[in-house]
């Protein structure tokens, strides 16, 4: 039963990773930028929720009403102010800029909020669980995180496939110059994509903060998990990203079941095995590309 439990908890954990990963996947798919500050932005969202819950005295879930729009706006500004300029500087510039941003965010958070471990108190909702049988309980919070992750991925999929702005994103990703000939402003399309990505980052940060603890220096670790989910699932496939997140979650949970310190390592090893055996990922479709 402990193993079944580990797998179930792993799947639920995978929901968080999928949520982390879809923003990374979207920014790469549309802008062709790997945002190395992705993890630190997630942590920033969690700290914004700390401030919002502290000053407004509301539940972290309610704080999403503030945190999601703020992060989306930040994404829009970030794209306009930094990322767009870096796109003109060849392949290296976006990486250097986002890595610089990662260092700035991480250390600014460290100075502002100290290195203390934090969490977002989710109240009863955070501790209540659904009894599924002998020694197998599923937390409502964990379950709803997975549901939110699936809903966000499905929503993104619909936006990309069916809506005019999704069409504009795919066209701009294919060929920005020709897209401009069609009247599409690539700056605006990119900024909207980044805004959407950071809105999902906000969700991921807050749900992660409610599920466990975080510190200002957690960002790089989250970036790595998001990245592993994307690569395991297959670049450019949103459903692959979900699968990748679930595989990573299960690997970590099963590894930790063997010995607690093996959890993260097991996730890395599964990633490396996938990279060696199936470098294009478990699922590879051309949805984003």
């Amino acid at each position: 039963m402990t193993w079944v439990n580990a797998i179930v908890q792993g799947l639920l954990l995978g929901g968080v990773y999928a949520l982390f990963a879809c923003g990374l996947s979207l920014v790469f798919g549309v802008l062709r930028i790997v945002n190395l500050a992705h993890g630190d932005l997630t942590v920033l969202a969690a700290f914004l929720a700390v401030v919002a819950t502290g000053t407004l005295g509301v539940n972290p879930l309610v704080s999403l009403v503030v945190v999601v729009p703020v992060m989306a706006l930040l994404g829009f500004v970030l794209q306009r102010a930094l990322l767009h300029r870096s796109l003109q500087g060849g392949e290296l510039a976006p990486l250097l800029v986002t890595f610089g941003l990662s260092i700035v965010l991480q250390n600014a958070l460290l100075q502002t909020f100290s290195a203390d471990t934090r969490s977002l108190p989710a109240g009863e909702f955070g501790t209540a669980s659904l009894q599924l049988g002998d020694g197998l309980a599923v937390g409502w919070l964990a379950l709803s995180t997975l549901v939110v992750a699936v809903a966000v991925l499905a929503g993104l999929q619909v936006v990309l496939a069916r809506t005019p702005i999704g069409r504009a994103m795919r066209a701009t990703s294919d060929d920005p110059e020709t897209a401009a000939l069609m009247g599409l402003d690539d700056r605006r399309v990119y900024a909207i994509a980044t805004a959407i990505a950071l809105a999902t980052v906000a969700l991921a940060g807050v749900f992660y903060g409610m599920r466990g603890t975080f510190t200002p220096t957690l960002g790089p670790q989250l970036l790595i998990f998001a990245f592993e989910a994307v690569i395991i699932g297959g670049l450019g496939s949103l459903w692959g990203t979900l699968l990748g997140g679930l595989v990573l979650g299960v690997a970590q949970a099963v590894g930790a079941q063997i010995q607690p310190s093996y959890g993260v390592l097991a996730g890395h090893l599964v990633f490396l095995v996938v990279l060696a055996a199936r470098p294009s990922g478990l699922l590879r479709r051309k949805e984003l590309r």
């Binding site: 005019p164 069409r167 897209a179 069609m182 009247g183 599409l184």
Partner: peptide, 10 residues
């Protein structure tokens, strides 16, 4: 979709 994308210009 290729055709529709241009319609947004107009």
């Amino acid at each position: 979709e290729n055709l529709l994308i241009a319609a947004s210009a107009a």
